[in-house]
Design a protein around this nucleic acid. Structure first.
Lengths: 121, 121
DNA sequence: ACAAGATCTTGACAGAGTCCAGAATCAGCG
DNA sequence: CGCTGATTCTGGACTCTGTCAAGATCTTGT
């Protein structure tokens, strides 16, 4: 656990669904300076350890959040890319068993709701 | 409907879930030459008209398919990025109504199953 | 045939992320 | 305390997708 990693983790905890770019800025506010590589490296470690979750919505940079392990989903605004957490509507692991799994070993079902947020319509 | 657009459409129809890159190659095989921009333009028009669907899996370039309007979902291999169609398991529009919609106007629920394909495990 | 408008080509550009080599830091050990 | 090896950080170059812009070319109605 290095200072850089902690700064990255705090940046994410402070503002969920933050993008890598903004994480770098926030971390710099804490540390004074940090390289982009260190941020990506820290993110890689944190994601790897399951401490943060990475989401990659189509058409916008990757975002990170500390809320993990509770199988929630996301609601994304098509206009401003704002992301909102949504609890799973149908129990713990919704739709995790498709009709035909094509012999895949499935480990996650990701649900994304697309729409317009109150501010954008 | 120009020759370029038809070539792009055929490329997609021939191999579903094809990436833009591969579409360009396939179209060149038909036409001899086509610019990258023309491919992107044709894709934009086709997607706009609802003739093809664009999917953008995290960590791989956008892919396109001609199967539209039947609300099916995708199964993606984490290792080789292979994409397989999956029919919707729970009726026509599964989970399209999350518990808490945060006042968004939702127009689409996208479901992606992540796992490993038979060849990759 | 011709003007108007759409479409295609070429080339430069931008955003996000990754790779790499070297410097700095840290933990363990003699 | 000083050495050694292993991580980690830095800075910069680079790749990959995709987009923008300007000019050339084709289509189409009249």
């Amino acid at each position: 656990m290095t200072a850089q990693r902690l700064a990255v983790l705090h940046a994410i905890a402070d503002s969920p669904h933050i993008a890598a770019d903004a994480i770098t800025e926030a971390a710099r506010a804490h540390l004074g300076t940090i390289s982009r590589q260190a941020v990506y490296d820290a993110l890689g470690v944190l994601v790897d350890k399951g401490i943060v979750r990475k989401i990659e919505p189509a058409g916008s940079p990757a975002r990170f959040e500390t809320r993990v392990g509770d199988n929630h989903h996301h609601l994304i605004c098509r206009s401003c890319s704002q992301v909102v957490d949504v609890d799973c509507a149908t129990g713990d692991t919704p739709c995790l068993t498709p009709d035909n799994d094509a012999d895949f070993v499935i480990d996650e079902a990701e649900v994304v709701y697309w729409g317009l947020c109150p501010a954008c319509r």
